[in-house]
């Protein structure tokens, strides 16, 4: 009975690959663990806690130097339990300014994890948020964006909660293998512990780098403040201009119901709520 149960649990566990990048502190500009990627790793650790036997592998494509190593160790210090399988991470080494997508796609196709978790967009470089979509297109896997939590994994189907704007949630069922991307709606990442982070090692895999020639041609500059939109008044006469400047903006006038019974008033409100589809 016991080995059978163990075997079953082993079967339940899935391979999760977490793609991590090097973040950028918004004020100081220093390298750090990226906010969204850390949330992705947090999500993977939550899956592991739910589903014993889950194997987490971390993946980063980029160059290896002191500042990036410090940032990457920020992720490695997040799993502090014994045997949690984060003693090392895979580093696909390639020089600065190369395209990460071919290297990652090749590695993922070779190792074929069942679930790939990424952050929605990088904090350095182009940061267009196209990478998860590019990987999904390369590998032909389904992609779900803006994930809030993973509810359960069963028979190769994962049930997820997707975060919608305005604090709403949507439940989705996705067939594995799949790619999921994580943004600010996912649970916040835990602190990184210094000791385990120091002890962890990097498994460095050399790749054949492909330079991102398109990005090199673009002109990059620190973000300018966007101009504030002006209220443009198109007035033919002085009276119109004065009115636009002096009058209160709202004057379109809605429907006013006076001398109605409470039931009639409630009926009108109910119709509006129904029309706007806010009653669930």
């Amino acid at each position: 009975m016991q080995p059978d149960l163990q075997q079953k649990q082993q079967q339940q566990g899935i391979d999760v690959a977490v793609l991590v990048s090097i973040g950028r502190h918004p004020t100081t500009g220093r390298a750090r663990r990226a906010e969204q990627d850390a949330r992705g790793l947090e999500l993977a650790l939550a899956i592991e806690a739910e589903l014993p036997g889950t194997r987490i592998s971390m993946l980063h494509a980029g160059s290896q130097d002191d500042s990036s190593e410090a940032a990457l160790r920020g992720y490695l210090g997040m799993a502090t339990g014994v045997g949690m399988g984060l003693e090392s991470m895979t580093l696909l080494e390639q020089p600065e300014g190369s395209d990460a997508i071919p290297a990652l796609a090749k590695h993922l196709a070779a190792t074929s994890p069942q679930l790939v978790i990424t952050g929605a967009r990088a904090e350095r470089g182009e940061g267009s948020g196209l990478l998860p979509y590019a990987l999904a297109e390369h590998l032909g896997w389904p992609l779900v964006n803006s994930l809030a939590s993973v509810e359960k994994v069963e028979n190769g189907v994962v049930t997820l909660l997707q975060a919608l704007p305005r604090g709403q949630r949507r439940r989705l069922k996705v067939r594995l293998p799949a790619i999921i991307s994580v943004d600010e709606a996912a649970p916040a990442a835990r602190q990184s512990a210094f000791g385990p982070a120091r002890r962890a090692t990097f498994a460095i895999t050399p790749t054949t780098p492909e330079a991102d020639s398109e990005l090199a041609q673009w002109h990059l500059a620190p973000a300018r403040k966007r101009p504030k939109r002006l209220k443009i008044v198109k007035a033919a006469s002085a009276r119109d201009r004065f009115k636009a400047a002096a009058s209160k903006s709202e004057g379109k006038g809605g429907q006013v119901l006076t001398d109605v019974t409470p039931e009639q008033g409630a009926e009108a409100i109910y119709q509006l709520l129904k029309e706007e589809d806010v009653l669930r």
């Binding site: 429907q255 006013v256 119901l257 409470p262 008033g265 409630a266 009108a268 409100i269 109910y270």
Partner: peptide, 19 residues
């Protein structure tokens, strides 16, 4: 009332209860 798209003049307690 000037801002509202729909305004109902009446006792709020009764209208809310009816709604």
């Amino acid at each position: 009332i000037k801002r509202a798209d729909l305004a109902v003049i009446g006792d709020s307690t009764q209208i809310l209860a009816a709604l």
